[in-house]
């Protein structure tokens, strides 16, 4: 669509912008403030320069949480994107089955995040949980509260359960937008199932898959509630991701300076990654 040049359009954006400014810019300024100051209490602050940033960047605790968080995001993307596409490819195209599948699949998406944690606690405890009990009675030692490996598996399965359907919905939306004529042409050419996927379905899904990838990366990179409810970041620090570590610092220990410095570093990482994604996305828009 060719757009008209009109700077007055700013007035239409202004209300939304002011609202987000109040919720984003002012709190962010507070964070910046804390990150460069220290206090002896009594609300008396003094300039502390970049000391907090150095403290955070030199601590193993921060790097541990960062590496764990990247590992987690990478793992769940590797499972959820192919699984979501695979399920979407097997969805019926029309009929009563579509609504049925969509409603059931969307259900986990609308469960409050701490309830998701509660559900998996209930499911995986070896004394009262269906899955935990089943695994234990098979004689396999399993405890998400004691064994870091089990904790990781539990948190990853929980995220796959919770969010795969989002990828399914997005991939499905991309697939139903493909006109039948494409498939007919492929049939005339005698295309194999794989080449139909590779040359028709995958290109048509490209944009939705970028969105799915983006949303899942962002949300898994800021994950807090679900692992916090299930494992509390443990055992030890094995499932302490960035947000969990940050909340521990800021609200648990009230280390405002390091917490603020960490917030800014955290935010800059997300900003950098999102900028890269956004650039890739918009360049796709232009070439398409």
């Amino acid at each position: 669509m060719n757009k008209t040049w009109n700077n007055k359009a700013w007035f239409m954006i202004l209300p939304a912008m002011l609202m987000v400014m109040i919720s984003a810019v002012i709190p962010l300024m507070t964070v910046v403030n804390y990150s460069v100051q220290d206090t002896f209490g009594n609300n008396e602050f003094f300039w502390n320069g970049t000391e907090w940033f150095r403290e955070v960047l030199e601590s193993d605790r921060f790097w541990g949480a960062l590496v764990r968080n990247f590992a987690f995001s990478f793992t769940i993307l590797l499972i959820e994107i192919p699984l979501g596409v695979f399920i979407a490819l097997h969805m019926p195209r029309k009929g009563i089955g579509v609504s049925f599948c969509l409603v059931l699949m969307a259900l986990p998406l609308l469960i409050p995040w701490n309830v998701v944690g509660t559900i998996f606690q209930l499911l995986c405890r070896t004394d009262i949980g269906l899955v935990g009990y089943a695994i234990a009675s098979l004689g396999i030692p399993y405890s998400y509260a004691a064994d870091p490996k089990d904790a990781w598996i539990t948190v990853v399965v929980m995220d796959v359960w919770h969010w795969s359907s989002l990828v399914v919905l997005l991939a499905y939306a991309g697939l139903v937008s493909i006109p039948d004529a494409y498939y007919q042409a492929a049939r005339i050419d005698g295309a194999s199932r794989w080449s139909v996927f590779r040359y028709i379905q995958l290109p048509k899904m490209k944009r939705v898959l970028i969105i799915a990838f983006l949303l899942r990366f962002m949300d898994s990179f800021m994950i807090y509630t679900e692992p916090f409810v299930v494992t509390g970041g443990g055992p030890g620090t094995s499932t302490t991701f960035l947000s969990i570590d940050l909340v521990k610092r800021a609200i648990g220990q009230f280390d405002l300076g390091p917490a603020a410095a960490m917030s800014i570093i955290y935010f800059l990482i997300i900003l950098l990654v999102s900028w890269v994604f956004y650039t890739v996305m918009t360049s796709n828009d232009e070439t398409a």
């Binding site: 757009k3 359009a9 912008m17 990179f221 807090y224 960035l242 947000s243 940050l246 918009t282």
Partner: peptide, 27 residues
């Protein structure tokens, strides 16, 4: 419409979707 800084404004909105709530809880 196209207007001065439209792409930047759109991206700025977008970054707020990406900001972790944990960063904002205390402020």
């Amino acid at each position: 419409y196209r207007f001065l800084g439209d792409k930047h404004a759109f991206f700025w909105f977008f970054t707020n979707r990406m900001s972790p709530p944990a960063v904002f809880a205390l402020p």
